[in-house]
Nucleic acid binder design. Structure first.
Lengths: 136, 136
DNA sequence: TTAGATCCTGTAGTCACTACAGGATCAAGG
DNA sequence: CCTTGATCCTGTAGTGACTACAGGATCTAA
């Protein structure tokens, strides 16, 4: 059964555990977000608990909409034990501003599309207010 | 002054007229969204009115969040004079569903971040509820 | 021992652009 | 007509955040 030297797991296993695609994990390692794990005698990666923690951290950040560079900054703070609640809060608040901008852009699209759609006859005719506006 | 054979304009000019980057216009041509314009004797592209219309159509679609494949479909409908108001409306309504999904994802991020941020002390201390949650 | 699952590497593809290099052409002024 | 400087031409490479291969090696369970 599980071998992989003492307590580590393979890439496939940690991928399932964290819900992160196995290729993505390799990618995170390549760009330096995830430290290189040790290897089995045959060259297979062996992931320890710390890698799982790291991956979950990254995943939560992604779910909050941070990009990989932002996550790198956050991880650096944590690694260097230089976390300042004030700065992290600022970081988060800035990010909220970006998110709100995106939401407002999307809402504008939504409004416009719904407005256009409401003017459609809904019939199988060549005359369409949506196309008219696009061609205006 | 303006030469460029009869009534056409250069790429730079049409870029300014439409508000679309000149490189982007070349890209649209390359992927077949924009028909190839005629050329001057020296090989420079000469854009006519129809190109300007096309580019404005594309731009409006992009502003409504359609991707280039969706725009390609829309343009094909128009070109083949196969516009059906019913189908276009359906198309738009489907797109609205996607937009709403994006908005709700973003709102969830926003809510979570604001909630976390509200728990921050705002002080320059290493203890931070945001980092705590990310590391949990 | 062997089958089949998983892993290794490097590379290429995705989307919608954007940016460059190195050279040709253009329009305007003299 | 000639020069100058702006614009244009081409092909290619880079962006972000993955994802998907190919062709081979290694692993684990039976």
């Amino acid at each position: 059964m599980h071998n992989l030297e003492k307590s580590g797991v393979s890439r496939g296993v940690i991928a399932k555990q964290t819900g992160i695609n196995a290729e993505t994990i390799r990618y995170y390692e390549k760009i330096g977000l995830l430290s290189e794990p040790s290897r089995s005698s045959g060259g297979h990666r062996i992931y320890e608990n710390k890698h799982g923690q790291r991956l979950r951290f990254i995943k939560r950040c992604r779910e909050l909409g941070f990009n990989l560079e932002e996550i790198r900054s956050l991880l650096t703070l944590v690694d260097q034990q230089e976390v300042s609640c004030e700065r992290v809060q600022h970081f988060a608040d800035d990010h909220v501003i970006n998110i709100r901008k995106k939401i407002s852009d999307l809402r504008k699209m939504e409004r416009t599309l719904k407005e256009l759609s409401s003017r459609c006859s809904g019939e199988d005719v060549p005359d369409c207010p949506i196309i008219d506006v696009l061609q205006r």
